[in-house]
Amino acid sequence: MKSDNKTYRFFFGRRGERHLPFGAMLLILVPFLIVGQYFQNRKYNALSASPEHTSTVISNIGYIGNSGPIIHYSFTVNSITYNGGMHANGFAVGDSIGVVYQKDNPENNMTVFEYYDGPSYGFVSAFVILVVILAIIRWRKISRQYKADAPVETKVQRACGIYRTSKEYIFVTGYGKTGFGYNMNYPIKFAPIDCDDIEFNNAFGEVFLASNREEYKELKSSELIKAMKQRSWRQLHLHSTSVFVNQDDDKISVVPTKLASDKWLDWDSNQALTFDVGNDSIYDIVSETRKLLDNHETDR
């Protein structure tokens, strides 16, 4: 199972984590608990098969950490002394206490309180509840981390504008989608009008792919036209043809422009081209875009 899998993280943590993984704790604690419960039940069953009763006095009361007092007692069978003890409150040294022991094995003994209470599953129940609670908490935490770490599927939105003048092609990167109203910005690439297809494709690809990074500082209109090495927008619109290329997920649209006034352009949707990224070759898309630039009729 891969280390980036959610189930793997639940049991073993992330690769490289130094804390004790949850799965390791279960592998240590659960077998220990099962074995301990098995021997406790086996001890009780053997004792109940041949019980003998006696009485004695509490010889000592000890403490281990914060687990509460432990009473200690001893008793004699056939001149042999045996010891025992249990967690209990409310007793003092010298108090009488009843003891039940196994007839053929007095070392197996317990107080009458333990014997008549029967095997205790309280600890097991508490442990199981604790494990379930911890498992739920850890699963929710891992689920949140897994969702946070999972790669986010971003929407593919790319754009660029291409101008064809009498001398060169100008490729301008498009950022910040508002319909077709992208902000044009760097990088800006130039290719001579007689460039081969490879040079045209490279310039187009660089500006088109750059637009998906969404990292740009918006240029003023006057700054942009200067960066494009043009005198003015009016002169560029009068003496060039242009297209706007836009990718929205698996669709690429190529829309040419037409002169709407003596200064500004409008979209010529009747001449627009649409391509399917999954079916159409990028080379065919670029080739058709160049043809549209070279052949589109304008009144410039």
Rank of each mutant, 00 (worst) to 15 (best):
G161Y: 01
G161H: 08
G161P: 00
I162D: 00
Y163P: 00
Y163M: 06
Y163H: 00
R164K: 08
K167P: 03
E168R: 15
F171T: 04
F171S: 05
V172E: 06
V172I: 12
T173Y: 06
G174D: 11
G174R: 02
Y175R: 04
Y175G: 02
Y175E: 07
Y175T: 01
G176R: 03
G176T: 02
T178V: 15
T178E: 11
G179P: 03
G179M: 02
G179S: 08
G181R: 11
G181D: 15
Y182I: 03
N183K: 15
N183D: 08
Y186G: 02
Y186K: 06
P187T: 06
P187D: 02
P187S: 05
P187H: 01
P187W: 04
I188W: 02
K189V: 03
K189L: 11
F190M: 05
A191S: 15
A191M: 03
A191V: 06
I193N: 08
I193L: 07
I193M: 00
D194Y: 09
D194Q: 15
C195I: 14
D196K: 03
I198G: 09
E199Y: 06
F200A: 05
F200R: 08
F200D: 06
N201R: 15
N201C: 13
N201L: 15
N201V: 11
N202D: 13
A203K: 03
A203P: 10
F204Q: 00
G205A: 15
G205M: 13
G205P: 06
G205C: 12
V207L: 09
V207P: 10
L209G: 05
L209A: 10
A210Q: 09
A210H: 00
A210M: 01
S211V: 02
N212G: 10
E214I: 09
E214M: 12
E215T: 11
E215F: 10
Y216K: 01
E218G: 07
E218H: 14
E218S: 11
L219E: 01
K220G: 07
S221W: 04
S221R: 12
S222A: 11
S222Y: 11
S222Q: 12
K226V: 01
K226M: 08
K226H: 08
K226G: 05
K226C: 04
A227I: 01
M228W: 02
K229V: 07
Q230E: 08
Q230P: 09
S232V: 03
S232N: 03
W233N: 12
Q235E: 14
Q235Y: 09
Q235L: 11
Q235G: 13
L236N: 08
L236I: 09
